[in-house]
Structure formats: structure tokens, C-alpha cells
Write a protein that binds this DNA or RNA. Structure first.
Length: 419
RNA sequence: CGGAGUGUAGCGCAGUCUGGUAGCGCACCUGGUUUGGGACCAGGGGGUCGAAGGUUCGAGUCCUUUCACUCCGACCA
């Protein structure tokens, strides 16, 4: 895409009410816009990035055999009454009435709705197991929304629900989801820990959280120095110093919760009478698991872990564009022509390119470089005076390393780096 | 929900104490000069000063009420 056609409102100044670095940078680089407490517009860059992250989540889930569906955000409160959560959930659950005075909620999570979907369609053990998910907007009327996308009221979440004929099979799926989540967060280029967690209001017998390691994290976790054990302080004493798994040293650190998986058992299927017929022709409640990933929160988490004093540093699979072609002097026809040729060539190879073709007199070279650094795409190609000698400059965003490249090697060099 | 703070142009702010026809920087528009690290000069557009009520000859400024937003805490699948 061309920079000149996009709405990318970058700013030099730090917005007055943002504290967290990811919040500040996402606002300053023109990814998001605040529209109310805990509510954000996703501008073109933010929307592209969100879709990229979403695509990684979807790909890995589909590979693991999950099926995507889509549920309405508005659900009748009668569903929530079936499990008693209409009362349990409290004020976080936003309730309202339609014109016929019927009560509805804006879904903060969808256990009831998904159990309802499956109980109407799956009747036999022969149809099991199934794992059904959606990537959809959720609403929680948080007491205190804060930190930008980290704790908004409306947020994009992937929620998956698995249904099984036995606990053993549910645990098998739980382990598969743990592996799938590890693949997702690794692909997104994140440093994370899987920790033992409290099941909280979702209920069930066991759960694990996926924590992005970052000082700004809202959760405190204990991690082992010598094995992969980790636990949220909610489930292990903060004073504990010895790893219960290997006896190694435990140390305290901060994490951002981006995923949580639960072994639910029958806590929802029983009250909702979601049952299947087993081999002995007897009705049994489904044994369930549930698995969440905070997709919009991931954007904030990626930036918390990947930024410098100049701006964002997106990882390869999350960046809105792989390359920013900076035309130093956009009024120079030779530069514009060379840039356009490169742009088309790179695009034809499947590389996502932004071309900074802004030619107005206020947008000089400096502005373009600063915007590149602020937005944080992995690479910039500078097309400048050296184009006369067939040379361009390649800048890597991480470390801001500059290299001179001959024009004819640009495409293959980028193909290699982005592979 | 407790504590603290802020609402003045798209963004960041001054002006409020001490009432007298609303200002600065960035952004935006026009013209010119610049052109490899957020340019310069000149001109210009944009505001029911969060809202309602009150005091006053006169309110951004004083009084009352209210709404919104932010920060700390409690809460959080």
C-alpha cells in the first residue's frame, strides 16, 4: 500500500493519559485511537496487525483439528441462568433489554452459548471429540479499564471449547492445546512461560496460563531457574523458593496473561444437560475443556516485549508490513520509478510492502525515517540519490543497522531475511 | 467501589488564584524558499472553554449540581 493513501496519524507528542509503553507507542504510531474508557478504534495499521495475529492463531488451531464458528456477541440472559452465572458474574456482565423487554448480555465469554450449540448438534459418542472455537469480540464491563489494549472493555479473544466422552481424552486435548499455544506464541516471536494457574470463575479442575514475560505485566509469577516449571502466585506461595518439580531455585517475575487453558470437566454440561449417548446407550454429560487467547491484548504484549526509544519493533509474523520503501525525494522521477518497480516486484513475491511515497513539502526524509522507526516494520529500503549508481540502503529496524545493497540483490536479500 | 487528579481547536498545553470580548506549540490550508534525520519565512482556517443552573453590568475564571476521562488501590475467566 501507499503511505500517501492511508490514514496513519503518527505524532511526535506523547498522549496525555497513556502510561504503558505499548499504549503510548500504539497511539503515537497510529495503530489505535481511544474512543472511551477501555474502547479503541483500530486504524488501518492496527487492523492489519490484528488480522495478522489472528491469522497465526487460526492457522495453528486449524492444524490441531479445531473448527471455527461464529457466535453472536449478544446472547439471551436465559442461557446464563441455566448455569447460574447470570448471578455469579456480577457487574462485569453488561446487561440490557431489547424493545420487547427481553433481557440480553454482551458476551464476556461463551461457555453457555457454545455448550448450547453442541448439545443441539452432537448426540453420540461417535461424533466425539470436537473442538470448536471462534475469534470474536468480547465485552467485559471492567471496574477499571487501563493500559490501553492490555485491559480494555471490548477486546478480541479466541475462545475454544472441546467436548469429550472421557476425562482421559479431555486431558489429551488439553495437552495438545498447550503444545498448540506454544507454537502460536513462538511464531509470534514472543518470550513466554506456561504457568500453573487458578481456575477462578470459569471453574474446573486444572488450568494453565501463558505468560509473556514483561516488567509491566499485571501478574506475578514464580519461575524455576533450572526447569520449565512456573506458577502464578495465586497458586503457589510467594515465599516459596524451591521448585516443586525439580528442586531448583524459584524466582519471582512479571507476566502478561495472553492465554489460559482449563480442564472443565462437566461443570457446564451437567447443569445445561448437554449429553451424548455412550456405547451402552446411556446418557452422559460431555467432558469439557476450554481455551482462551487474548488476541487484541497480544498486540500490546508484543510491543511491551519489543520496542526501543524510537518506537515499536514488530516481529516477523505480527508486523503490518515487512518492508517500508522510503523514497527520499518523492518528486525525483527516477527515485519514484525505481521504488515503484521494487514495490511491485516485492509484492509479487508475497512480501507485504508499504511505500512511503509522500511528496508534500512538509514530509521530508527525516519525517519518513522517524515514522518508519515509530511504526516499527522489520525493514526499510531507502531509495535516494545512490539509485543513480544502482544502490539502495537497507535498514533493519532492530538495532537500526544500515547496509548498502545493489538494486539487483534487493529482492533475494529480503526473501532470505524474511524466510 | 475508596483515594487523587484532569476536562480550553485534531493533539499537547497556558490562561482560572486576582471576572473585562480566548492564547501558544504541533497538526491542517495558501504562496515562496528548502530537500538524507521530525525545515524556514509570510499569510490563513478552525473554539457553544465537558454540560446544566446560579451570582454579576459582564463568567474560561466565582458558587451549586452533574457528566466524562486518567492515575493509585480493591477487583479481574
Amino acid at each position: 500500500m501507499k503511505f500517501s493513501n492511508m490514514i496513519i496519524p503518527t505524532t511526535k507528542e506523547t498522549p496525555n493519559d497513556a502510561v504503558l509503553v505499548s499504549h503510548i507507542l500504539l497511539l503515537r504510531a497510529g495503530f489505535i485511537q481511544s474512543i472511551g474508557s477501555g474502547l479503541y478504534n483500530f486504524l488501518p495499521l492496527g487492523k492489519i496487525t490484528l488480522d495478522k495475529v489472528r491469522a497465526v492463531v487460526k492457522e495453528e488451531l486449524d492444524k490441531a483439528g479445531c473448527q471455527e464458528v461464529h457466535l453472536p456477541i449478544v446472547t439471551p440472559i436465559t442461557l446464563w441462568e441455566e448455569t447460574g452465572r447470570a448471578d455469579k458474574f456480577g457487574k462485569e456482565l453488561l446487561r440490557f433489554k431489547d424493545r420487547h423487554e427481553n433481557s440480553f448480555v454482551l458476551s464476556p465469554t461463551n461457555e453457555e452459548a457454545m455448550v448450547n450449540l453442541v448439545r443441539q448438534t452432537v448426540k453420540s459418542y461417535k461424533q466425539l471429540p470436537v473442538n470448536v472455537y471462534q475469534i470474536n469480540w468480547k465485552f467485559r464491563d471492567e471496574v477499571r479499564p487501563r493500559f490501553g489494549l492490555m485491559r480494555g472493555r471490548e477486546f478480541l479473544m479466541k475462545d475454544a471449547y472441546s467436548f469429550h466422552a472421557s476425562t482421559e481424552d479431555m486431558i489429551r486435548e488439553f495437552d495438545l492445546m498447550e503444545e498448540t499455544y506454544k507454537k502460536i506464541f513462538s511464531r509470534l516471536g514472543l518470550e513466554f512461560r506456561v504457568v500453573e494457574a487458578d481456575s477462578g470463575a470459569i471453574g474446573g479442575s486444572g488450568s494453565k496460563e501463558f505468560m509473556i514475560l514483561a516488567d509491566s505485566g499485571e501478574d506475578t509469577i514464580m519461575v524455576c531457574d533450572s526447569c520449565d516449571f512456573g506458577a502464578n502466585v495465586e497458586v503457589i506461595s510467594e515465599e516459596a523458593t524451591e521448585c516443586p518439580k525439580c528442586g531448583g531455585n524459584l524466582s519471582k517475575t512479571k507476566g502478561i496473561e495472553v492465554g489460559h487453558i482449563f480442564q472443565l470437566g462437566t461443570v457446564y454440561s451437567e447443569p445445561m444437560k448437554a449429553e451424548f449417548l455412550n456405547e451402552n446407550q446411556k446418557l452422559e454429560p460431555f467432558v469439557m475443556g476450554t481455551y482462551g487467547i487474548g488476541v487484541s491484548r497480544l498486540l500490546a504484549a508484543i510491543i511491551e516485549q519489543n520496542h526501543d526509544e524510537n518506537g515499536c519493533i514488530w516481529t516477523k509474523e505480527s508486523t503490518p508490513f515487512h518492508v517500508d520503501i522510503i523514497i527520499a525525494k518523492a518528486k525525483d522521477e527516477r527515485q519514484m520509478e525505481a521504488a515503484t518497480t521494487l514495490y511491485n516486484e516485492l509484492k509479487s513475491k508475497g512480501i507485504d510492502v508499504l511505500m512511503d511515497d509522500r511528496a508534500d513539502k512538509k514530509t521530508g526524509f527525516g519525517v519518513k525515517i522517524k515514522d518508519f522507526e515509530l511504526i516499527g516494520m522489520p525493514y526499510a529500503l531507502v531509495i535516494g540519490n545512490d539509485i543513480e549508481e544502482g544502490k539502495v540502503e537497507l535498514i533493519s529496524r532492530k538495532g537500526l543497522i544500515k547496509e548498502e545493497l545493489k538494486l539487483e540483490f534487493v529482492v533475494e536479500t529480503l526473501m532470505e531475511r524474511l524466510a
